[in-house]
Computed example of a mutant assay.
Amino acid sequence: MFRIGAHVSISDGFPAAVDHEVDLGGNCGQIFVGSPRGWAVSEVDETEAEAFQETTEERDVRPWIVHGTYLVNLATPKDDLAEKSVDCVQSELDATAALGVPYYVFHPGAHTGAGESTGIRNVGERLSEVDVPDDVTLLLENTAGKGTTVGKRLEDLDEMVEVSSHGYGDLGICLDTCHLFAAGYDFRDDAGMADLADDIEATVGYENVHYLHLNDSKHPLGSEKDEHQHVGEGEIGEDGFRLFVNHDGLRENPMVLETPVDEKGYEWNIETVKRLRTGD
């Protein structure tokens, strides 16, 4: 079954997030387990976790994914920030497991002047300090590449996994379309999509891509700017998304939207992706 959804709030509690997703027309979804711009992780009440799992099952909204706080930086040269980031990732992973959610995704971070190769190695080594729960897969998200952020190239994500003591299995990949495009991957026509497909196969491998973030880009190809636009209304356009969401190597993955929340909103974007999707 085609799984498409959006990021939804947990402000009304975890079980209510499932209903919010259904109201948008989604059948999978993404949540935070705390403030995206803070270090605190919400305590997961056992009763609420059970209610969340029951509602998920009843309404057939799955799989869920938890997005990590934006403050996490495993690439940093600063030991105190690295320690805080590792502790936060661990707490978020534990909350993910307590909710019965199978995926957790985060941004690798920035090397802030230490050098790209050092930042990439830092991510891998610090991932080794994390205990990934048995029923959770930790996903690395590709980045747009702005400033000193690492993870712009697919081979960089692959190196992070290789450096880590976990390897694929405990770890996997989440691909963001806006980030791919901003990083210079052009998949707006058949030739470009074929090139991206070859890059995925040669680096992280399709089998290790578990989730997709669908966001158009407000800025041109290779801009390294991470500003999301409604699907089909940015620089990627409908042709690019049609190729991406229908590609044989990607189409079975769950997909969530992180598009602007304005007069169009998530419901409009979900319907747009459903229209672009073929063969279901």
Score class of each variant (00 low, 15 high):
Gln90Arg: 10
Ser91Arg: 15
Gln229Gly: 00
Cys28Asn: 09
Cys28Met: 07
Lys78Ile: 11
Glu258His: 09
Leu93Cys: 06
Val18Lys: 08
Thr47Tyr: 07
Arg37Ala: 05
Ala40Val: 14
Val130Gly: 00
Thr259Ile: 11
Leu196Gly: 02
Asn208Thr: 04
Val136Glu: 06
Glu54Ile: 07
Arg251Gln: 12
Asn208Leu: 06
Gln90Phe: 05
His179Ser: 14
Gly68Tyr: 05
Arg59Pro: 00
Gln53Phe: 12
Ile236His: 01
Leu99Asp: 05
Thr55Glu: 14
Ala144His: 03
Val41Tyr: 05
Glu129Thr: 09
Arg277Lys: 08
Trp268Leu: 00
Gly145Lys: 06
Gly13Lys: 13
Cys28Glu: 04
Glu141Met: 13
Gly167Arg: 13
Val18Arg: 08
Asp12Tyr: 12
Gly29Pro: 06
Glu267Lys: 15
Glu57Ser: 11
Ala75His: 05
Asp131Phe: 03
Glu125Gln: 15
Ala40His: 14
Gly13Ile: 14
Lys152Thr: 10
Ile10Gln: 03
Pro36His: 04
Asn215Thr: 08
Asp87Thr: 11
Asp45Ala: 09
Leu257His: 03
Ser165Trp: 10
Val209Tyr: 05
Asp156Trp: 09
Phe52Ala: 04
Arg242Gly: 06
Gly184Arg: 06
Thr55Cys: 08
Leu257Thr: 03
Pro260Gly: 01
His179Pro: 09
Val261Cys: 04
Phe241Gly: 01
Thr148Lys: 12
Glu155Trp: 15
Phe52His: 08
Glu201Asp: 15
Asp280Ile: 11
Val136Met: 12
Phe2Thr: 14
Asp195Met: 03
His247Phe: 10
Asp248His: 01
Ala51Val: 03
Lys274Trp: 02
Gly145Leu: 12
Cys88Gly: 00
Arg251Ile: 12
Val245Phe: 09
Phe181Pro: 02
Met1Pro: 03
Ala194Trp: 02
Thr118Arg: 15
Gly249Asp: 07
Val130Gln: 01
Ala194Cys: 04
Thr148Phe: 12
Gly184Val: 07
Arg188Met: 02
Asn269Gln: 08
Asp156His: 15
Gly237Glu: 02
Asp94Leu: 10
Ser117Phe: 05
Leu81Phe: 04
Ala202Glu: 13
Pro260Ile: 11
Ala49Asn: 10
Leu93Gly: 03
Gly240Met: 11
Gly192Lys: 07
Asp23Val: 10
Ile236Asp: 01
Asp248Ser: 12
Asp190Ile: 09
Val101Asp: 00
Gly205Val: 07
Ser217His: 04
Asp156Phe: 01
Thr137Lys: 08
Val256Asn: 06
Pro36Gly: 04
Glu159Val: 15
Ile200Gln: 04
Tyr206Asp: 09
Ser85Gly: 05
Val132Lys: 09
Gly5Ser: 04
Asn122Phe: 11
His179Ala: 15
Leu24Val: 11
Ile270Met: 04
Val273Asn: 01
Glu233Val: 09
Leu140Gln: 08
Gly184Pro: 02
Ala194Leu: 10
Pro15Lys: 13
Gly100Asn: 05
Arg277Ile: 05
Pro15Gln: 12
Glu258Val: 14
Arg3Cys: 06
Tyr103Asp: 01
Asp156Asn: 13
Ala183Glu: 00
Leu71Val: 14
Gly145Asp: 05
Leu212Ile: 13
Ser35Glu: 02
Pro133Ser: 11
Thr137Leu: 02
Gly222Tyr: 15
Gly205Cys: 07
Pro220Arg: 10
His67Ser: 08
Pro36Ala: 04
Phe2Tyr: 14
Val72Ile: 15
Val130Ser: 02
Thr272Cys: 02
